[in-house]
Design a protein around this nucleic acid. Structure first.
Lengths: 216, 216, 216, 216
DNA sequence: GATGAATGAGTCTTCATTCAT
DNA sequence: GATGAATGAAGACTCATTCAT
């Protein structure tokens, strides 16, 4: 089965090699060897080295988005959805370390073109989060002053940084579940409509803010 | 003045060029031209191209850490400290977009050696956050179940992802202050000792929280 | 045939180019051009520029040693063998001027490593001479006080310096045969017309030698 | 004294460095450091790197020739002169290993220009030998059929190869005196114990030589 | 389709030489 | 004269890509 699927074998080999050496320090020859394929064969399936990276992103990211969306469809509760998202994200990273490293690391640099390309595909992923927020706000569960555009980045960033932890270090000080729950709780309890215990009380300089906090 | 400081000129030129093209797509010749220096001159100040990247990180990261620490020393309130940290971080990023891009992007990849190297210097920065958390927990302001090791990553990650926003896109949909305040509020209100309203309906382990959710 | 033998073509081109410019003043690009091959192709067959030099020495020196040994096997007479060796050596040099120049000139310098490397392969060649001497001594043809270790160097050196004559100057004042015969005669018979008017008189330490000189 | 003689210090430093690394692998900076002089200072005394090599050859070779000629003037006996030449040559090499290595090794390669240049200066040295031979022939001591042009090269070559022995290997299996005496004897008296079992049988052209060999 | 030998453009780095001080 | 920081030309080597088989 796998013997015939040259495309898939090259992709898998590239994921392994890119993760090991980084995109720029990876050689086409190394990927070819890892895929048990001749160097030239790679060019029957991909336009160039760069194209392999893009394809990895497109194909694998699509799978991830689909998988996350499916998980989320199991509940209507935005609070739960946030936690599920966190758990799914971290689990996927743990299951696909090499892929995760490439998406996190290699795709950040590369050319401007790649950055912009990445962003489009990426926006879709981030939007899942902002949609949850908006839904929560509509349902009166989340505070109206929470800006979804900021929240989605903050939430994703928190998970992303956490996952770098697993990608880079082999020792797992915290489990995926613990991390997912902690992080979702940080955010969840913070964005709930419920009264906020005034972190601004101590700020004598900005009495205006007091009003805001009392508002809630 | 600036004419004589070849080291500084090369560093500044490299920051600009690396940010523009990425490390691997940058040419020594381009840095030299940008610094108004001969190609060979660069090798009087640095061992090789890679050494420039490391030096940028060491020198500039040191400045950032010092600057952040100084800002934080102005208050004893852990809540305020978290917000100050966020504001400082995002402000620094906005003021030094090129440098920020390099630290975010270029240093993530590079060799395993670099990753580990980066992590050491980086740990110092993250520890600032966890120290604030521990201080807040000691003072009874932050919940004891918050794990500082997870929080520091989540908090930094949130800010880091947010800052990529400014680095990559030129349009500023949100100002630094807005973003800093929003993000610090997300986290602050979430980790405070104060009662948290009920996203945990599904979690049977913490029935106490149920009460909170019924409030709404 | 020759079209396909890239290895051989590169070696031959390198011999020509190294002989023309010297190793250090030769460019890989020049060798490639001379061999009708792309620059990069050279690195499919050799590790580096230096490796080409070593290979030339190994391959060609092997051929020479074999050829000389075969010629010598045609007689049992040590006297004849010495003359044959001289003739063979000078003939080979004349036939392969470029190669001779490289072996004489380029291989003398290079790194210490090379010098030692060269010596090992070289010792084999010199040993052919000392073996002839030992054989002659055993047969009672050569004087017993002749030290083979010194003789082999002296004999080879005489031929080597003579051959530099052909390598460097294009004008052939003396033919190979004349030179070979003269040199072998110098060593075999000496150049004295008659017993020398006591060059050893002044040497009081070894009167025994006087007897020898009077012998003649 | 030595402090002021920059020219001499540079020459001595260059001899040491060139002998250590070879001409092409030696750096002007290394010579400057060895001579306790600034890089640029070297260019106040020499036109370029190459000029240093030439100067070494000219100045030091001149001293050697003068020294050898003076030693030779102590006797009128051509036989003795040959042995003195051998002894002087090997002694000088032993006393100035670094210089000897440069003359032997570095001057052989270098550009065509150098080779030719070297030859001119060198011819003077070789001519000392051929003059001894001619003198010996005039006095009826040396055979008339000995060609001085071949002999000088053979004799010098024998000594030169022998001296490489001391330059390259640190272990001295043979002393200078032993080697000088052996080599001069080879040439003066030949190595035959008795008339050779007709190596000339095959040479019908020169029956005259038979007589000679039987003579001894 | 598959191969892998061949290509040659591209770049980091070295180092002899210069020249302002 | 002396210095040594600065220069920039030059070249070994790499590797993505091609193409004849």
């Amino acid at each position: 089965m796998k013997v015939a699927d040259k495309h898939g074998r090259i992709i898998q080999a590239a994921i392994k090699v890119f993760a090991r050496n980084g995109f720029f320090n990876s050689r086409i020859a190394e990927i070819a060897k890892e895929a048990n394929v001749a160097d030239g064969t790679i060019y029957l399936y991909f336009n160039n080295k760069y194209d392999i990276l893009i394809t990895i992103f497109e194909e694998e990211m699509g799978k991830i988005i689909a998988s996350v969306k499916q998980e989320l469809s199991k509940t209507d509760n935005p609070c739960e959805k946030l936690e599920i998202f966190a758990l799914q994200h971290l689990s996927l990273v743990e299951k696909n370390k090499d892929l995760a490293e490439i998406i996190q690391v290699e795709l950040r640099q590369s050319s401007k073109f790649m950055k912009e390309y990445r962003n489009r595909k990426f926006a879709e992923y981030l939007q899942i989060i902002s949609n949850i927020v908006k839904e929560g706000q509509k349902k009166g569960l989340f505070r109206k002053d929470v800006m979804p555009g900021i929240f989605k980045r903050a939430y994703f960033g928190a998970l992303d940084e956490m996952s770098r932890f697993w990608v880079l270090s082999s020792k797992k000080k915290y489990g995926v579940k613990t991390a997912a729950r902690q992080i979702s709780h940080f955010f969840l309890n913070g964005i709930l409509e419920a009264p906020c215990p005034s972190p601004q009380k101590t700020k004598k300089k900005k009495p205006a803010k007091k009003t805001k906090s009392t508002k809630k």
